[in-house]
């Protein structure tokens, strides 16, 4: 029964994931007083890409062809570990929140290699920056996960999710986790998904060589990753209230942040990440004080 629920959950989450992206875009346009595309636009985009022919560079190897599957595999496997719909619904036997961070790194590893594979300077630049940012994000992600799970004494996502009381330290850690989410989903202060400007793009530069169905898979993977991180905040870190409402609130917060901020210089991201690192250290301090 439990496994059926897990399967159902993952299917629903994957199906909903493009909608969240569309929703964020809609909210952004609402704030900017524009009309913008409909909330289902990401679905149309995926469908369009799936029907297109694929152009592959001559210089690439099997890594380039394999990377989209590795990415989609890793985000899906990571999503299995998140009890989004209720404290019992996840494959907690397979791994915990720490394992989740490492599984996501698996997909990123292949993505970065694929960026280098075509031999274009764009792809290399994207890979270099992606690995740079992700290596800075990793300690923050881990420490905020630690801070969230210190109170209940286990890094198991289900145990954290079903831990009844909401502690002050969790609140601070959630702040750091939000910064991690922004960086991991390539949102504005860190990266900008909407532009293809050489000097600023990170994730987009890395996947510049992709087209057609492979690109559709990569896009879908980034939608899923976004749902994954939102769910970690909504279901694990803040274990009360309605899940759907919480997801909407997070989406609105991300949209508001994107509209109100400008993209940072690459080396300002270091400062942002070290500040979130300090934030999660403070969360641990508060937890050590017993709050």
């Amino acid at each position: 029964m439990k496994y059926l629920l897990v399967a159902l959950q993952i299917v629903v989450l994957i199906a909903v994931s493009p909608f969240i992206t569309g929703l964020i875009k809609k909210i952004k346009n609402f704030i900017r007083l524009r009309k913008g595309p409909g909330v289902f636009q990401p679905y149309y985009d995926l469908a369009k890409l799936a029907g297109k022919e694929e152009v592959i560079s001559r210089d690439t190897s099997w890594i380039f062809a394999f990377a989209p599957y590795a990415v989609i595999g890793s985000v899906t496997a990571a999503l299995l570990l998140v009890p989004a719909f209720g404290p019992g619904i996840s494959l907690n036997r397979a791994g915990d929140l720490i394992a989740m961070i490492f599984i996501l790194a698996f997909g990123r590893f292949f993505m970065a290699l694929a960026g280098l594979d075509a031999g274009s300077a764009f792809g290399g630049m994207g890979s270099s920056r992606e690995m740079f940012i992700s290596s800075l994000v990793e300690p923050v992600a881990l420490l905020s996960v630690f801070a969230v799970s210190l109170n209940c004494g286990s890094t198991d996502a289900q145990a954290v999710a079903s831990y009844g009381t909401f502690r002050f330290s969790t609140l601070v850690a959630t702040g750091a986790l939000f910064a991690v989410t922004i960086a991991e989903t390539s949102r504005i202060p860190v990266d900008n998904r909407e532009t293809h400007l050489e000097l600023t793009m990170i994730h987009e530069a890395m996947v510049l060589e992709y087209s057609g169905r492979s690109l559709a898979l990569i896009e879908l993977a980034s939608h899923i990753k976004q749902v994954l991180f939102f769910s970690v905040i909504a279901a694990v870190a803040v274990p009360f209230g309605n899940y759907a409402v919480k997801m909407l609130v997070i989406a609105a917060a991300v949209a508001a942040l994107e509209v109100s901020m400008a993209k940072m210089r690459l080396f300002r991201v270091v400062d942002m990440m070290s500040f979130s690192f300090v934030l999660s250290v403070i969360a641990v301090v508060i937890s050590a004080m017993g709050y």
């Binding site: 002050f168 400062d271 070290s274 300090v278 934030l279 403070i282 508060i286």
Partner: peptide
């Protein structure tokens, strides 16, 4: 507690 740690976080923000 919130206020106290707000003071600390602001001190760090000023360092940043």
């Amino acid at each position: 507690g919130l206020i106290l740690f707000g003071i600390l976080v602001m001190a760090f923000a000023m360092v940043a």
